[in-house]
Structures are given as C-alpha cells and as structure tokens.
Computed example of a mutant assay.
Amino acid sequence: MELQKGKLTRTPSSLLRSPTVRSSIHSLSSIADDEEEEKPHRPHRHQPRHRHHLLHLLLLPLPFALIFFLFLYLRDDSPLFANVLLLSSLVTAASLAARRSALFRGGATAAVRRASSVDWFIGGAERKERRPVGRIVREGVEYYSNGDYYEGEFHKGRCNGSGVYYFFGKGRYEGDWIDGKYDGYGIESWARGSRYRGQYRQGLRHGFGVYKFYSGDSYAGEWFSGQSHGVGMQTCSDGSCYFGEFKCGIKHGLGYYHFRNGDKYAGEYFGDKIHGFGVYHFANGHCYEGSWHEGKKQGFGMYTFRTGDTRCGDWDSGVLKSPLLASDPAVQRAFQAARKSAENAILVPRMDPQVNKAVTAANRAATAARVAAIKAVQNRINGKFCDTDV
C-alpha cells in the first residue's frame, strides 16, 4: 500500500468558531414607550408647594421685626429686659438658620446618593455582570457548530499553548497551539486507529514525525506542508519496506526497497516508480544492473543469472531488444551508473535520531495538553471563566 492512499485530510472549516450571538437591542419605539410610562409617575403638586415656600419666606421676618420694635420701645424704660429680649431673639434666629442649612445639606447629599445609585441602560438592555478579575483563568472549553470542541489554553480569543481538540466522532489532536492552529509538537489520532506523532507548523505536519495507518502501514521521517517529503522510511503490513527520499508524499530520488517476495532494489526513483539507474536483486539469485523506465528494464544494462551467465544489450519494456557484449562501452556506462546509484541509495543518511527526538517531544506536548484540558473542565465546573472573546 502506498503512502498517499492512507492520507487523511482535514477540512479547515472544522476549526471555524461559531459563537452564539445574543441580541439585546430594542427598537426606538420601545424606548419612547418607556419614557412615556415614566411621565405619569412625576408628582403634579410641585407648583403649589413652591408658592407655599414663597409665602413662608415672606412671613418669616415679621416676628423679628416686632421684636426689634419692642426692643426700641423698652430700651429707655427697661434696658435689662430689652437686652434679654434681643439676645434671645438672636439665639433663636441663629438656631433656625443652622437647622435650615443642615436640612439643605442633607437633601443635597441624599440627591447625590440617589443619583449615584442609578444604573442607566439603553432601551432596557440587560446588564452584564462583571467577572471578578481573580476568577478569570487561562484554560477554558469552547464548542463549535459542527460538533467539535476544544479544551485547553486560550490567548487573545484563540487556541494558544496546550490543549486538546476533539473532532466530532472522528478523532482528536493533543499538543501545542499557536493562533488557533497546530504548531509545535503533538499527537493526532483518529477513530479507525491511525495516529501521527511529531512536529507541526501552521496546522500541518511539518518537520519530523511518525504516521501509523490503521492498516498497519507506517511512515517515519521528514514532513513538509502535511506530506512526507525528504528522507524517511515506509513500512507496509505485507512485510515490504522502503527507505530513501520522498517528494510530495511519493518515492522520488534515491532509495532502497525490500519487497515482500524477497526481491531488493537500490537506485533511483521517479514519481513513485523505479526510474533511472539502479540494481535489482531477485529472490531467486538473478540480478539486473542498468537503466530503468517506469518500473521496467529500459535502455542499456546487464542481466546476470545465478549460474553466472549474463545477457547484455539494449532493453525495451523488460525485453532484450539488441544483444551486446558485456565489454560494450554503452553497456559498461549503464552498468557503472547503476552500481553508483545503488551505493548512493544505501548511503542515504537515516533520520532515526531526529524522528525519535520529535516523538519524545510530541509525547510530552500531548501530556501537557491533557493536563490543560483537565484544568479547563475543572474551571468550567467550578464556575471560573476563561475570557475567550478578547
């Protein structure tokens, strides 16, 4: 089974957030109705009360005027009595003035208190309760319209840090996030049993990692933009194995293939097929060294039987078209080029240390993501909020 057959794609729409929008907007007519309802509650006796206060202010100086004239009348005949009368009137006037001043200040303070306790809302909109600053946390839970949900860390309204994303009925991702995308290290697993452990960049497998398919096939090596690209090893459930270069998810370049029937090939690949120069060892002991085209012997080459006999010449679609001597220059050039390509294919550097390092980092990132998910669920249960809309 080839690698591209087991490729699992993700649709970008699965990460689209679909927050539930609540509207508290009221029409202008409702605001006008509210204002009209307030008018009947205003008292209509304010004008008579103002006239009463005006009359009270006009009559207030009369007693003091009478006391003053009485003081002038008694000043010569009874000075002591007149002085006592004047002093008592002054004390009464001072206490009355102080009382009115205190009442005025008290009324103003009450008015200020009433004004400060009023909460104003446009159109009767519902007031949002302010969340205590100490209760806002980093970990939270968010649900999406397609059934997916995320548990983990947020920053500026996006998945950032460590977290677990659950695909509805399909699988999950556990690992690092940057700006709402997989970025760093993580583990991606699917319901049928496939799993990837390794590096990510901008939501795609990128760097080093191991992908194990539910069928038993696997690929371990370099990735680029979501595809096997670079040097890696592909193993299949039937026992076959390929190690070498990949390009855009297929075998391309130099590589070594061990077939399930025991055949072995080392040399050049092009477009997922044996193409170029290489050496093919058959399980029965035969060997072909020379030129290839799309998996068939094509061009000049040498076929050696296990008995030691050889057949050389120009080949066409696997059939010897023009027999030549082994010493023919064209045969020798193809023979040497095939052996050189086979040696280079075997010497392709292995990526095992880098892959193992990436897998270890992915396991750590997945563990941190699961811890963050547990905290997110606990925060939700305990009523702690994660401000995911900032």
Rank of each mutant, 00 (worst) to 15 (best):
S240R: 03
C248A: 15
H258W: 10
H252Q: 11
Y265G: 12
P323F: 05
Y256D: 11
F259R: 11
G276H: 08
F282E: 07
G285L: 05
D263R: 07
H252F: 01
Q298F: 00
S317N: 14
G255F: 06
G271T: 09
F259W: 13
H293W: 01
G253M: 02
C248I: 13
G313L: 11
G255L: 07
Y303G: 02
R311M: 10
K297M: 13
K297Y: 08
G276E: 06
D316N: 13
G271H: 14
E245K: 09
C248P: 02
Y288K: 02
D263M: 05
T235I: 12
G249L: 09
A266Q: 12
H258C: 13
W292T: 05
G278L: 06
G285A: 07
Y242I: 06
D238W: 08
H286G: 09
E294N: 14
S291D: 03
C241N: 14
G301I: 06
G255E: 06
E268V: 03
S237H: 15
Y257P: 04
G285D: 06
G253A: 02
G249T: 05
H275R: 08
F259C: 10
N284P: 00
K297L: 10
F277A: 06
K247H: 15
F246N: 07
G308F: 02
K297H: 08
G253Y: 02
L320K: 01
K273D: 14
K297N: 02
F282R: 12
G244D: 08
I274Y: 09
S240W: 08
Y280G: 01
Y288G: 01
C241E: 14
R311V: 02
A283E: 07
Y256W: 09
E268P: 01
